[in-house]
Design a protein around this nucleic acid. Structure first.
Length: 469
RNA sequence: GCCGAGGUAACAUAGCGGCUAUGUGGGGGCCUGCAGAGCCUCAAACGGGAGGUCAAAUCUCCCCCUCGGCCCCA
């Protein structure tokens, strides 16, 4: 099956054909390191995590790079405000990022380059642009010369003329053209700075991504991701710079952009101050539920963030988790005498899942297919006549899915605590005795009290089960 | 103004030419001492208007509405 990818560059669904046989380069814009990550960042991290895993599953050797930008305005401002060296701020929020994303089950990237650690590379790149006539120095600043580009706007489909017509563009006397963007800017008093041939100052936003992506992935690589809000100007300018620096096209073959996280009518963002940090959300919801919530919508679409949606995700995911739990329990008790065609059906289920993922990483559709599979499994589980081999295959489907999406619990049974297990067994036995004597009041009382403690008792055909919620 | 992405049953989302979808919620059954879980089943949809096709939620055109981008942002 071929992997199809919606490419922002062409605006079309294209077959994925990597540039090189041995390695697929993938670069995703990380965060600006000045504050805790919010759910919007989580959406980006999780979707590209899943995309990366699927591409790897297709047999490609993915080299995954996520950058940290610590040289832009917010970081500088925050560092000054806290009276911290920039490095301290950078280190802190990189650590927080890894903590948050780790908690969300995001597989680490191969390389996490940091902008401020690549200053010489950045300065060299800017010099190269100046040497080529693609950039110019002006009173210590350096600007990219947009007029020298032949096809401006290939990613964002914007025309230079249109941009200048309606937009609110700052008229800066230092620029030749209002659309020229900053490669290097002179420091302001009190700001952190680096020396350069032009002035003491710092790089503009965009250039660090060009430099770091090309450094680690080469002048031309396969996949570049980010949120839709980055298409213009960030990614557009990244292309201009990179292709001007290297002289190689395309800088990136496939551009992927994820829909934004909304809160009601607005997108979630720091500047609107309507964000929910990952840390706060994880206090209320299981990380697996959060992942399910994020993956239950196609990555290119926006998602509205609210508790109701998370609650629904929790219930929905619980349905799948139940099937998996039940299958696992049945697996322990199954005999291997009977045979049926669940091995084949399981293979088919994985194929269907894969097919959905091959269609521009349609995790929503892939999950829907799992619900269908789950329903079928439940029917047979209830009849209780599945063979060990079948159950292994069925559990295998869930494990395969989990390998890609990471949405299931290992086991929802005990608390990994022998003492608790034993105590629970005593309570369950007592309750069973009460039930046999038809002492429903006592039996229900035990169940209710445990429920209050967050422990659910279920009477099933295979015996009594309990789980903590 | 200029670009981009969308408008699918109560809600959230897939589907993007023929197979009426998935979950949550709702009605009715089955199972159960009850509960839970599960199964079966019912109700419920493609923003509006033209066009085109044997056939459209899916294609074309027009209109309406929403969100995003054009200062920073995953």
């Amino acid at each position: 099956m071929t992997l199809m990818i919606q490419n922002t560059l062409s605006g079309k669904l294209e077959e994925f054909v990597p540039l090189k046989e041995d390695e697929v380069g993938m670069y995703v814009c990380g965060i600006n390191t000045y504050d805790d990550s919010h759910m919007g960042h989580a959406k980006a991290a999780v979707t590209f995590d899943v995309i990366r895993r699927h591409v790897e599953k297709k047999g490609y050797n993915v080299k995954y790079v996520i950058n940290f930008t610590d040289i832009e305005d917010h970081c500088i401002e925050r560092a000054i405000k806290l009276d911290w060296p920039l490095e301290k701020l950078t280190d802190k929020y990189i650590a927080e990022y890894h903590k948050d994303m780790g908690a969300l089950g995001v597989k680490p990237a191969d390389i996490y380059p940091v902008a401020s650690h690549h200053m010489q590379d950045i300065i060299d790149a800017i010099q190269k642009l100046i040497d080529k006539g693609m950039a110019y120095e002006s009173q210590g600043d350096v600007y990219f010369r947009v007029a020298r580009v032949k096809n401006y706007g290939k990613l964002s489909k914007q025309k230079l003329e249109d941009m200048q017509a309606g937009a609110r563009i700052d008229i800066d006397a230092k620029k030749e053209n209002p659309m020229d963007f900053t490669l290097w800017k002179v420091k302001k008093e009190g700001e952190p700075f680096w020396s350069s041939p032009w002035s003491e100052g710092r790089p503009g936003w965009h250039i660090e991504c060009s430099v770091m992506s090309m450094k680690y992935l080469g002048e031309s690589f396969d996949l570049h991701g980010g949120g839709t809000e980055l298409i213009f100007p960030h990614h557009e300018n990244e292309i201009l710079q990179s292709e001007a620096i290297s002289g190689v096209e395309p800088f990136v073959k496939y551009w992927l952009h994820g829909g934004l996280m909304n809160v009601g009518e607005d997108k979630m963002s720091k500047s609107l101050n309507n964000f929910f940090t990952i840390k706060d959300v994880l206090k209320e919801f299981d990380p697996l539920v959060v992942r399910f919530f994020l993956l239950n919508t196609h990555y290119r679409k926006p998602i509205d963030f609210n508790d109701t949606a998370l609650d629904e995700a929790k219930r929905s995911l619980g349905r799948l988790q139940n099937t998996l739990d039940n299958a696992r329990v049945a697996q322990e008790n199954a005999d291997d005498s009977k045979s049926d065609d669940w091995v084949n059906r399981s293979t088919e289920a994985i194929k269907r899942f894969d097919k959905a993922m091959d269609n521009d990483f349609n995790s929503r559709d892939a999950i829907a297919s799992l619900f269908d599979f789950s329903r079928e499994v439940n029917k047979y589980l209830e009849m209780g006549n599945l063979s060990k081999e079948s159950l292994e295959a069925i559990v295998g489907v869930f494990e395969e899915v989990d390998d890609r999406l990471t949405i299931f619990q290992e086991s929802s049974g005990g608390l990994d605590n022998e003492l608790v297990d034993n105590l629970m067994q005593v309570l369950i036995d007592l309750r069973q005795e009460a039930r046999e004597k038809k002492d429903w009041a006592l039996a229900d009382s035990i169940r209710d009290k445990l429920k209050e403690m967050g422990i659910t008792i279920e009477d099933t055909a295979d015996g009594v089960r309990w789980k903590s919620s």
